[in-house]
Nucleic acid binder design. Structure first.
Lengths: 340, 340
DNA sequence: GTCCGGAACTATACCGGTTTATCTCCGGTT
DNA sequence: AACCGGAGATAAACCGGTATAGTTCCGGAC
């Protein structure tokens, strides 16, 4: 026999299908004796629930979805996503929940995927990343009644739950550190301006600069790629009035920027200090190693998974989870600035 | 109404459920007029197939599975996997097939996941990575009758299909290049010995060395981590008789090795040449940039996805797909060796 | 005029579970 | 003795599709 069904078990145990269902799901309706007998038979026949059949009755799909709307080719080089993914996975697989992963080109397609998943009841919930200003996904997910966790970025997003770290405080800690070293002209090589996290960091930088009385502070936008990170750095270092320190929004761009500095013969940290907003093995492996804000992205992913599981179990679960603020790991790429 | 079913459409169009099913699936059994009318009604009611219900009838799950058995924490730093994943995704999502991703600790757990997925009919097929010697997964997957594609590694694996690149030829091309530059003592910082690809590369190195008459050639095993890559390099460079060239099995280890050389004051490529078996943005960003075997891992993943789709469509599809052999991209980390 | 065959549909079983209405005991009350 | 309530179990409906066995109807051949 290929695969035993509850009907097979029922026949063998001499009871009805319904009784088997009750017994296997630990619900009342059968005596303890019968329950034990049924469980024994199920065990003996090596029965496994057929999740598809179960789901048809309106039950859980035991699966959550993650759609990433970035060009697939560039994703491979983002350590952040890989780590986040690993963490999410770890959090989910502990509960035997699988992750449906989909990579698409843009937000519109992402929304189409959500609609399809919802209509096919393929997923119980969603993880949303890369929140934008006036993000159209919020309303759609609300409308589809899918429990969802927004990764990164505090605040109310419709009816969604968010898991985030304090970008603002993190940026402030970098600026304060650089200011303490004597830096006054700080450049910020940022990501795409429509992303919320980019905005928060840019604003935090400006506010800290104002408070500390730093005049020559500016943020420059890029698409997060190493290419644009390098180009922007080349630009900055070619100016007559060079910045004395550069803060990069991602480790990939920081490494690319460091490469440009070396190629141009600008010594790091002698002539320019470099810091990264994101940490990974990349920043440790370069020479000089790059000062960076480190956080445990893996644990962050795990936390997001747990938040979603909570939300699935109880729709009234806490809607706002703040995780540890990234802490500055000082390495060799930053040094005191001595005005000449 | 929450979600229209074919029964709703049938009622509205004044036909039976069966007719609707025929019409929506483009099968004979209804006239063109009726088909058009039914399709119009379905469109108007914004009907979507309920994949779960469909799957219950024994149909496809429209989903394939990938289980990676490596410590989740280390995965985040492997550009190879991220790129492979992106490529797979792209190949699959073009056909609206989703990828079920699971990260587990070891092969035994991986096998348990396969059994569960098979028994629950959650996936139509599998992608297998990291093939080992006498891999226990082969028999299990065969037994479960799950169509599967093995990524990397030629040869017959039970009834499975394999998608691979010629590691042997690739390694030969590195060795020949280094030999042509005058290198005689070549060290190979390899991965885990139980992986098939590690074995193939090690053997190819030995064979090429024999053929070219290079005496001081050796392979050293690691766990693929940057830590062990660095430690092994430190070891090699501390010897009295240093190798003149080091070949690393992964880009991550190559970058770590380069870091060690710089830290020890060993100039690259002046005193030691460095080459990597795997390419990614990492090797391009270092200074000096690292000579590496490049291949399009994204396209490789895409190819694997297509092979699996072929296999699903036709169980007699070709069982062995060879992809382009990685080609050597010469950068700054390799130079002629002048015997002193 | 009858019979046959195929096209166009309908009715219904089925997939493997969950859920609900129902049915049967059996002991305890009044 | 008649009635009630609840535990323990069963039969049947249901979820949303697919597959298959029938049923009509119609035109063409004998």
């Amino acid at each position: 026999m290929s695969r035993p069904t509850i009907a097979d078990i029922a026949r063998r145990a001499g009871v009805s299908k319904g009784a088997v269902s009750f017994a296997l799901n630990g619900r009342p309706g059968v005596s303890e004796d019968t329950r034990a007998r049924i469980l024994a038979v199920a065990e003996e026949m090596n029965w496994r629930p057929h999740s598809v059949a179960r789901a048809l009755g309106g039950a859980r799909a035991d699966s959550v979805g993650l759609v990433i709307a970035r060009p697939a080719r560039t994703l491979g080089v983002e350590p952040f996503f890989a780590k986040l993914l690993s963490g999410l996975q770890a959090g989910l697989s502990a509960h035997s929940i699988t992750l449906q992963l989909m990579i698409v080109e843009d937000v519109q397609e992402e929304i189409r995927v959500y609609r399809r998943w919802a209509s096919e009841q393929r997923v119980d919930g969603l993880i949303l990343v890369d929140l934008r200003t006036r993000d159209p996904r919020i309303d759609v997910v609300d409308e589809l009644l899918l429990p969802a966790v927004v990764v990164g970025g505090p605040g109310r997003h419709g009816n969604l739950c968010s898991v985030w770290a304090d970008d603002r405080e993190a940026m402030t800690s970098i600026v304060e550190y650089l200011a303490a070293l004597g830096h006054k002209r700080i450049a910020h090589v940022a990501g795409t301006p429509e992303f919320r996290h980019t905005q928060r960091r840019t604003r935090a930088l400006r506010d800290a600069a104002n408070r500390l009385g730093l005049a020559g502070v500016e943020s420059l936008h890029t698409d997060f790629s190493d290419t644009e990170g390098a180009a922007t750095t080349r630009n900055l270092l070619s100016r007559r009035e060079r910045p004395s320190a550069i803060v990069y929004d991602s480790d990939l761009m920081a490494v690319a920027g460091l490469g440009v500095a070396m190629e141009m013969g600008v010594s790091v940290p002698g002539e320019v200090s470099i810091a990264s907003f994101d940490d990974s093995v990349l920043t440790e492996l370069t020479h000089p190693a790059i000062t960076a804000l480190s956080r445990d992205t893996y644990a962050f992913g795990e936390r997001a998974a747990l938040a979603l599981l909570d939300l699935l179990a109880d729709p009234n679960a806490p809607r706002d989870v703040k995780t540890e603020t990234p802490r500055l790991t000082v390495r060799e790429s930053t040094a005191p600035w001595l005005e000449r």
